[in-house]
């Protein structure tokens, strides 16, 4: 698994990811420093958040309801959305709703069925980082990220609609 992030329309590899992922039954103990940044599933959130001294991330499935997720975002710095299949596009809407409806400003991370050719659309919907699925070529992912240099419609990236951008701003 390789972690990628993007900035100013360019994707890059993240070598030193501070986040540690916890399973549903794991909790912070001696083996894990309480100051670590941990990503926990929804079921573990109430158990881990009170004791964590590092940052807390929340992992949700791509079909989670945005309003329900938003209700749990207090003190959460990262939301990891897991795509069950790359053909399941709900994660894109979930990300936009968390950003644009609920104003989530922390990191949005895509994991699960994340393929190189999807990163561009995911980024436009508000994702900051991507765990590339095994088998996907990192080189390809970096290369194709910038295939399209412009877009017609606004999304979570604040792009202006092309039909307005093409006119000089008065």
């Amino acid at each position: 698994m390789t972690l990628l992030a993007h900035e100013a329309g360019v994707a890059r590899v993240i070598a030193d990811d501070p986040w540690i992922t916890l399973g549903p039954d794991e909790t912070l103990d001696e083996t894990l420093d309480e100051a670590s940044d941990v990503i926990v599933p929804l079921e573990g959130l109430d158990r881990v958040r009170p004791v964590a001294r590092g940052r807390v991330g929340l992992r949700v499935p791509g079909d989670a309801d945005a309003d329900a997720v938003a209700a749990r975002l207090g003190g959460v710095d990262l939301v990891q959305i897991e795509l069950p299949r790359f053909t399941d596009g709900r994660a894109y809407t979930l990300a936009r709703l968390l950003r644009e409806k609920h104003g989530f400003r922390g990191e949005l991370r895509a994991s699960g069925a994340v393929l190189p050719d999807q990163l561009h659309y995911l980024a436009r919907c508000g994702f900051d980082s991507f765990e590339l699925a095994d088998g996907g070529s990192v080189e390809d992912a970096l290369a194709v990220f910038s295939d399209l240099s412009q877009s017609y419609q606004p999304a979570a990236d604040g792009a202006r609609p092309a039909w307005r951008r093409r006119r000089p701003v008065s």
């Binding site: 790359f86 053909t87 399941d88 596009g89 894109y92 809407t93 936009r96 561009h120 659309y121 995911l122 436009r124 919907c125 399209l148 877009s151 017609y152 419609q153 999304a155 609609p161 092309a162 039909w163």
Partner: peptide, 17 residues
Amino acid sequence: EILRQWSTFHPEFAFLP
């Protein structure tokens, strides 16, 4: 035409049901 532009490469709606 305006709907064509809006829907072209719409990042959120490329993997609809």
